[in-house]
Design a protein around this nucleic acid. Structure first.
Length: 259
DNA sequence: ATGGTAGACCTTCTA
């Protein structure tokens, strides 16, 4: 069973490209981030006509996440717990009732820049809430996949030019420590489990010819519970999507779990 | 050292 994550940077601006990718790849499940529209504006028809069930947690202009699945979705929840006063749409979770039953959380973690602003402590608080929630989910001892745009560069090898990210919220020690603490609950990065090489990037800025220079970073991940780790068959990063017309600045990343 | 791009939207914010 194949589960993808993709920050599409506006599902409506990207509709042709996104639909084309779905037609080519036909993932079982896809978690989308930065859909940048309210639930009513999500372009359901082209995906429903391909057989997808759709659950969204939308927001106007910013953020917004969705889970699309060829298999039935149950137990859908929107937002992380303890979200009093947090009006950003950055998390949606559902149980996929497929050939394998797997709980999937779609994450759009706050960027946190600039570090000197209130946005950075917001990022760290959000990561702490995610860790608390992940700890509770791991207690179910199910196949669990928490995937999305984590907005964290875990290690220097996850950036072409790590020195350029000094002082950036994505590479701050606190961000990297919080990400490691999340993994230390017992979640493994599918990229590491599969033994993928360094330099496998998932994001290239639109500016300064970052793509042409391969000046990328790896910030889109699948974190797996032990039950999901044991079923991991492979991982693929769809670099080819960065070459397409009107690309997102992120490319899809997809894992396969043995059923 | 600076500026470069993209998306949504109301002229500026977010990334």
């Amino acid at each position: 069973m194949r589960i993808a994550t993709w920050n599409v940077n506006s599902v409506n601006a990207r509709l042709e490209t996104v639909v084309e990718w779905f037609r080519e790849i036909q993932p079982d499940v896809a978690c989308l981030q930065e859909i940048k529209c309210v639930d009513e504006k999500f372009p359901r028809e082209p995906f429903e006509s391909m057989g997808y069930n759709i659950e969204t947690h939308g927001q106007k202009t910013y953020n917004g996440v969705a889970i699309l699945s060829k298999h039935p979705l149950s137990d859908v929840t929107r937002g992380l717990p303890e979200g009093d006063g947090d009006d950003h749409a950055r998390y949606i979770e559902a149980v996929v009732e497929g050939p394998l039953t797997v709980r999937v959380g779609a994450i759009y973690l706050p960027n946190g820049n600039p570090v000197a602003s209130e946005k950075f402590p917001y990022k760290l608080r959000w990561m702490e809430r995610l860790r608390t929630h992940a700890r509770n989910l791991l207690a179910y001892e199910e196949a669990l996949v928490l995937c999305g745009d984590y907005n964290v560069i875990p290690e220097p090898e996850d950036a072409k030019n790590p020195e350029n990210w000094t002082g950036d919220a994505l590479f701050q020690l606190e961000s990297r420590q919080a990400f490691r603490a999340l993994k230390n609950l017992g979640l493994a990065d599918a990229h590491e489990v599969a033994g993928e090489p360094g330099g496998t990037f998932t994001f290239w800025d639109y500016q300064a010819g970052a793509w042409q220079r391969n000046n990328g970073i790896r910030i889109d991940f699948h974190l797996l519970s032990p039950q999901a780790q044991d079923r991991l068959a492979g991982i693929a990063t769809h670099r080819f999507m960065r070459e397409r017309e009107k690309p997102s600045d992120h490319v899809p990343v997809m894992i396969e779990l043995r059923v």
